[in-house]
Design a protein around this nucleic acid. Structure first.
Ligand SMILES: [Zn+2]
Ligand SMILES: [Zn+2]
Length: 183
DNA sequence: CCACCCGGTGAT
DNA sequence: ATCACCGGGTGG
């Protein structure tokens, strides 16, 4: 007597390889697929694609529970009015980082300096680009440049990093808008 | 000053 | 392994 343990294999036809990939992901995305299997306009699809990776990241972040990228905050800006808020936040972060550092103490994460890298916003025009321009210096030297195509560089990442969550929009841009270098 | 590049290294 | 953020160095 033989036991048929894997029945799906017997099918033999091309089962979508995505399933394997999706497996490691959340069911929520699967639901999306089911709800709208074919009614996509490519545009819609693109957005979902982007969101899904963002969600994945957020999930991971939530798990690790140590969000808070502090670039260099040291000047008066953060201390003056928002000082109290900053301090409170700091305390909380310290607590959380305590657990994190236990695992990653070896890394550049200091006890009070998490230094997490920011991620592309996913909604700005450069982020929505799907292909490299292949013309900028970064594209030409992709192997060594360690840089994303200049036309795909996220607008948010070009801005100065947010020191802490501001209650009001008091950010004052010193000068002109920065534009990507080289065309 | 600033745009530009280099390269360590976090994130996947 | 690849990708690409970001700190720092450099030339104009
Ligand atoms: Zn390019
Ligand atoms: Zn963006």
């Amino acid at each position: 007597p033989h036991l048929q343990q894997s029945s799906e294999q017997a099918g033999g036809k091309g089962s979508p390889p995505e399933i394997t990939l999706l497996n490691s992901e959340f069911d929520s995305k699967n639901i999306f697929r089911v709800c709208e299997p074919v009614s996509n306009t490519s545009l819609n699809n693109i957005e979902v694609e982007d969101i899904e990776q963002l969600v994945k990241c957020i999930d991971a972040e939530t798990l690790i529970l140590n969000s808070g990228y502090v670039p260099a905050l040291s000047s008066d800006l953060g201390k003056s009015t928002l000082g109290s808020v900053g301090v409170s936040l700091n305390l909380v972060q310290d607590n959380l980082s305590n657990s994190t550092e236990a695992v990653e103490a070896s890394g550049p994460y200091s006890l009070k300096n998490p230094k997490k890298k920011r991620r592309r916003c996913g909604v700005c025009e450069p982020c929505l680009r799907k292909t490299n321009c292949e013309e900028c210096s970064c594209c030409r030297k992709r192997k060594t440049s360690h840089r994303i195509c200049k036309k795909r560089k996220c607008e948010e990442l070009k801005k100065p990093p947010p020191p802490i969550t501001l209650p009001f929009e008091v950010r004052q841009r010193s000068c002109k808008l920065s534009h990507s270098f080289e065309a």
